[in-house]
Design a protein around this nucleic acid. Sequence first.
DNA 1: CAGATTTGACCCTT
DNA 2: AAGGGTCAAATCTG
Length: 274
Amino acid sequence: MEINLLINALNQGNEQIRELEAQLDQPNSSEACKSLASQVQEALATAISMAKLLNQPAKTSESPLLASESTRSENSEKVFKKRKKMTRLNKQVRVCSPSSAVNDGYSWRKYGQKVILGSKFHRAYYRCSHRDTLGCQATKQVQRSDNNSSLYEISFCGDHTCGTHHSLRIPAPPSVVHNTSPETERLMIVSGDLQPSFSLTSPSICGPSNDISAPNLCGSGSEMAEMLSGASWTMSESPIENWDFKVDFDTLWSSTTIESTMVEFGTELPFDFS
DNA sequence: CAGATTTGACCCTT
DNA sequence: AAGGGTCAAATCTG
């Protein structure tokens, strides 16, 4: 199984759409076409991020989300502190384990923690560890869900420019389930309303089951997650250069409901994007 | 000892 | 003015 091929293919598709946008940037191009290309690009970006999330390494140790007792000095001098402009969140996911919330293949450094009004649990703030060295501006917020304390809601802000994503090579594929088990790491992919769906056409991807099989990949983010978690689907031939990305408007705009798929993992995750 | 985390304070946005 | 995001000194950890 070569999930990384899918990632590469999606990235290439993204590049093709950028080229399309460049062509559409001519004076006579309609705004609708430009908007269309932009939407497809965002949908692809969502698919890529979901696939990467599925590849996140699982670890047994929990992140120290709870505050420890600290004896910070009470008489530190007050200094003038600037604050950058508020940034906008661009992706949201939910995971069912604290380790999955923190270990997504990137190196994060916690820089704050706040009690949020109306929430039972605090919100933790992380930024890329390479912010100072490589100028990576990616940040994320992790907060335990009020409704389901086993869920962790993660909001991402900014893209990684550090290029330091790493992954683990793991042998066994996962199984898709719809219930939970405390003995296993669990990952819940939720397609939010920001970038809810993807739609693309490729003759090079084959799937294991009829409902999600290629040649047409078309559906919501949850279907993407389910497809990626399939045990036996493979890439074949890889005529990536011949990919013809097109937008299925009906799919794009009818998939706005929030759907979720539970993907249950063992102690090790099955994907390798290296 | 270097890097990561904690946590109260600061300040921006609404 | 309140709430939330960020800063940075103190503290922890390997």
